[in-house]
Design a protein around this nucleic acid. Structure first.
Length: 117
DNA sequence: CTTGTGATTGTTGTC
DNA sequence: GACAACAATCACAAG
């Protein structure tokens, strides 16, 4: 069984403190953006269904409804979504590699680093 | 080695 | 463009 000794891995319930959440300023220059979450894929597929039955539902409805359904799903139902997440993880891993590569190596040089910003 | 934190992802809708 | 609840995550950092 999965050693879940570390149960408190979850974030504190209060994260919404103040300012600043979405679109965070990347602290790292080459920020290796992590992979997407199963929820992300789940929403992509479900957003259509949710909206189909809740054409009036805006963000709040969809968000809560989506989350509720998500928990209702079983692992097998989440499987496809999770699998996609895993796949994306590989992609993210590649990003990290590139990030790590530049980070460590260095040389300075030139190259094209950066684009614009 | 263990634990925690932060940063990130995607959806819709409005100003 | 940014932010709002909802959920996952998990790579990295620090002790």
């Amino acid at each position: 069984m999965p050693k879940e000794a570390t149960k408190s891995t979850r974030r504190k319930a209060a994260d919404k403190e103040k300012g600043g959440r979405a679109s965070k300023a990347k602290k790292d220059k080459n920020a290796p953006k992590r992979a997407l979450s199963a929820y992300m894929f789940f929403s992509q597929d479900w957003r259509e269904r949710v909206k189909a039955e809740n054409p009036d539902a805006g963000f709040g409805e969809i968000g809560k409804l989506l989350g509720t359904k998500w928990k209702e799903l079983n692992e097998e139902e989440k499987k496809p979504y999770v699998q996609q997440a895993e796949k994306d993880r590989e992609r993210a891993d590649k990003e990290k590699k590139d990030y790590d590569k530049k980070k460590t190596a260095d040389s300075g040089s030139a190259d094209g680093e950066d684009d614009d910003e």
